[in-house]
Design a protein around this nucleic acid. Structure first.
Length: 481
RNA sequence: GAGCCGUUAGCUCAGUUGGCAGAGCACCGGACUUUUAAUCCGGGUGUCCUGGGUUCGAAUCCCAGACGGCUCACCA
């Protein structure tokens, strides 16, 4: 670092400021040259990128140049670039940004190489890049200084290419099905649409507190009322909750709403959309997550929540129908069973602990308790259960969907019920939203809605065990190391 | 929020019973015109996470704290 600063000062004194360049015309990316070697051999190309390794042999020097596509070998020879320029080759450091013009050739060992006729230092690296053989392992530096992770680790680059590909695939899919992509407010005076604690901020000019959104649901449904009929939004939502391998305070949520569709239709949409993203981005439907096989081929299994519990946990069906029995079951299983806990909460806890981790192949768990689904329409023949499903795969919950509750009076009762929970101390209970109720009173068609956690979907498709591996800049406690 | 583990050179990591701070890569000097973890010769560049304590002496033992990882709890 000290030496590199001195070198930089020397270059500047010589009138060769390495930060003066504003552009460089390049003709090919590294992998384009490798892929089209047969047609490019012998012709001149211009490449640019970061030097990641150098092998000096006196009057010849090999170097690896990394660009967004991959790496290509450069060859500088004394009689190729001339004596004056070859002297500058010795000044190059690993990490420097270099542009080179030269002839495409193959070396004795068969390596596709650009034999430089000329080159230019486009930017100086004052700090050396991470070690070339072991790469960058320190997980904290990988998250805090993602650029180093991207320079050093091929796998990190791949993960974010997959992420971009998945989002692109989903957009195309929904666009083809006639969905309109929209943007709704991130700052809201009532943060609804999910059961979570919001971040609060303040608008100075209006002198009002605002919440960062925890979901896009209630605004997208307003658009359904407005006749948009098929809408979606892919956007960041913010939840003031704990951080874990599956939770980041801000994460990317896809929500889609389709008028005149029920939750069965949304299941078809979900499995088709995810399978297509996997097919387009990975080229396959069968993958491995955490060492386990996952087959995304539709149709996915549909299992009512209660059946899934009976099937996977040591619980009898009758234990899921009365508060007394469920409490005893929770005690037996070592789960919280406080006297004020409601049946639906206890059933949900049993599910989360004993069933979810076992849902490796994609599965739709259907028919959640209405009591924990304040925005979902209840089954007409069993008001205790909602027309709701959650997709699971790789032991992860990937989303949440239902036939949307469109009865404004019933919605008001649900909100009032939530308000009672809130008064009882449940900070995640859904807040009353009069403006949303007003919209429902104008009439919302029967509608199916879906939310998918994009980060978790990308985790599944990239075999990532932590959500931080699929978010470029995950939330970290500030601590410049 | 709780438990366990981790933090040593730019990077990857050793460091024995408490006794001069180490290796590889990178870097600096030298040799070398087809290497690819180039090779060969020479050179160690450090707030051992921070602050206390014990001790003749602490990277090492004790206490407190910071940051991170994993697991658990709440959430998607």
């Amino acid at each position: 670092m000290r030496q590199r600063r001195a070198e930089l000062a020397r270059l500047r004194e010589l009138g060769r400021d390495p930060f003066r360049a504003t552009r460089f015309d390049r003709t090919h990316l590294a992998t384009e040259i490798r892929d089209a070697f047969d047609s490019l051999e012998g012709s001149s190309t211009r490449v640019a990128g970061r030097l990641t390794a150098q092998r000096r042999h006196g009057k010849a020097t090999f170097a690896d140049l990394q660009d967004s596509s991959g790496t290509i070998q450069l060859l500088f020879r004394l009689d190729g670039v001339g004596e004056k320029k070859y002297g500058q080759v010795a000044e190059l450091d690993d990490g420097d940004i270099v542009g080179a013009e030269g002839t495409v050739c193959r070396t004795r060992t068969g390596e596709v190489t650009v034999a430089a006729a000329d080159f230019v230092l486009l930017a100086k690296a004052l700090r050396p890049p991470p070690e070339k053989w072991h790469g960058l392992r320190d997980i904290e530096i990988r998250y805090r200084r993602r650029y180093l992770d991207l320079i050093a680790n091929e796998e990190a680059r791949r993960v974010f290419q997959v992420r971009s590909g998945v989002i692109g695939s989903i957009r195309r899919f929904l666009d083809e099905r006639g969905f309109l992509e929209v943007e709704t407010p991130m700052m809201q005076s009532v943060a609804g649409g999910a059961l979570a604690r919001p971040f609060i901020t303040h608008h100075n000019a209006l002198d009002i507190d605002l919440s960062l959104r925890i979901a896009t649901e209630l605004h997208l449904k307003r658009l359904i009322v407005g006749g948009m009929e098929r809408v979606y939004e892919i956007g960041r939502v913010f939840r003031n909750e704990g951080v874990s391998t599956q939770h980041n305070p801000e994460y990317t949520l896809l929500e889609a709403y389709q008028a005149y569709a029920g939750y069965q239709d949304i299941m078809e949409l979900t499995e088709t959309m995810v399978a297509r993203a996997a097919e387009e981005v990975l080229g396959r439907l069968k993958l491995t997550y955490g060492g386990k096989e996952v087959d995304l081929t539709p149709p996915w299994r549909r299992v009512p929540m209660v059946e899934a519990i009976v099937e996977r946990a040591q619980v009898a069906p009758e234990e899921l129908h009365s508060e007394e029995a469920a409490r005893r079951a929770c005690q037996r299983l070592g789960l919280p069973a406080a006297a004020e806990m409601r049946l639906s909460t206890m059933v949900n806890n049993i599910f989360d602990h004993f069933v979810q981790p076992k849902l490796i192949d994609p599965t739709f768990i259907v028919d959640y308790p209405t009591a924990i689904s304040p925005l979902a329409k209840a089954h007409s023949d069993n008001p205790e259960l909602a027309e709701r499903f959650e997709p699971f795969a790789g032991g992860m919950e990937l989303g949440n969907a239902f036939s949307e509750l469109n009865d404004p009076e019933e919605q008001r009762r649900r909100f009032e019920e939530q308000a009672r929970s809130r008064l009882a101390g449940d900070e995640e209970a859904h807040p009353m939203d009069e403006d949303f109720l007003l919209a429902l009173e104008y009439g919302m068609p029967p509608t199916g809605g879906l939310g998918i956690g994009i980060d978790r979907l990308v985790m599944l498709l990239t075999d990532s065990s932590s959500i931080r591996d699929v978010i470029l800049f995950p939330q970290m406690r500030p601590h410049p190391k």
